[in-house]
């Protein structure tokens, strides 16, 4: 890290470390409180441990792709600002668009380094103000919304069943958006729907089905929590395998 560059100065590093400490403290606080309450509810320690380990495994690959976004943005902004932005609130799609909009408004591109402190300050403000909206809304709506839902679904057995169906439906709606994108979407980085996205999707589905049925058949309860992250890795591994063994015309074939 080049400390003489204003984008990666010791002050910037200190801000980043402060934010890392805050986010970690908040997460630990909620984990400890939930853990205690889980014990009061009589949830087994084994279940909690499995939740922790499978969540770590589940997170590794997406976290590395978030890290890749930091690297992409680092061309123009240095490593620290993208690091800060992707540690709090930030998400892959938003931060790239926000940075791009701000840099382009000042006549630059994300491909070239920002050397004017004033431009850098503008990008920092734009990325921050653009992303904080949920934190402003949440304190007002979260509790009300959740109480209403709690009351509605716990009213009767029928309402409970409908509540379950609706929350399953909402989640299926989310998955469907990503599946539809793998089938027919386009992306700003040119990684559009095509052979790769659909075949990785299918491999991950098949891997999951096979792993789940192995768990069921051989009663491998210990493996159960890891079927999801494992299937994800198998899907990603398949992408590397296809790229290595199949002709480029097939792997780069996109219909969008």
């Amino acid at each position: 890290m080049d400390f003489s560059d204003f984008k990666t100065s010791p002050v910037m590093l200190a801000i980043a470390l402060g934010i890392v400490a805050f986010v970690t403290a908040q997460s630990l606080f909620f984990i400890v409180k939930s853990w205690k309450h889980a014990k009061e509810l009589g949830i087994e320690k084994e279940t909690l441990k499995n939740t922790v380990v499978s969540s770590i495994l589940f997170t590794v690959a997406p976290a590395i792709s978030i890290l890749a976004t930091v690297i992409v943005l680092a061309n123009a902004l240095g490593t620290i600002l993208p690091w800060i932005r992707l540690t709090v609130i930030g998400n892959l799609a938003y931060e790239t668009t926000a940075a791009q909009t701000a840099v382009e408004a000042m006549g630059g591109t994300l491909g070239s380094e920002i050397t004017d402190p004033k431009q850098f300050a503008t990008v920092t403000w734009a990325m921050t103000i653009g992303s904080i909206a949920p934190l402003i809304f949440l304190p007002f709506v979260c509790k009300k919304l959740q109480n209403k839902i709690g009351e509605a679904v716990n009213k009767s057995e029928g309402a409970k069943k409908l509540g379950d169906a609706l929350s399953a439906a909402a989640f299926i709606g989310i998955i469907s958006a990503f599946i539809a994108r793998a089938i027919a979407g386009t992306s700003s980085d040119g990684n559009n729907a095509g052979f790769m996205s659909v075949s990785v999707l299918i491999v991950a589905v098949i891997a999951m089905v096979i792993l789940e049925s192995i768990c069921k058949k051989f009663k491998l309860d210990k493996l159960q929590p890891f079927t999801m992250p494992l299937s994800m890795f198998i899907g990603m591994g398949a992408a590397m395998l296809f790229e290595a063994v199949l002709p480029a015309e097939i792997t780069s074939f996109m219909w969008r």
Binding site: A61, P62, S65, I175, F178, I179, R181, A182, N191, M196, S197, V198, V200, L201, I202, V203, A204, V205, A207, M208, T227, M228, P229, S231, M232, F233, I234, G235, M236, A239
Partner: peptide, 10 residues
Amino acid sequence: EQVLPALFGA
């Protein structure tokens, strides 16, 4: 490049 199809497929 294919993290999301793999994640949501599983």
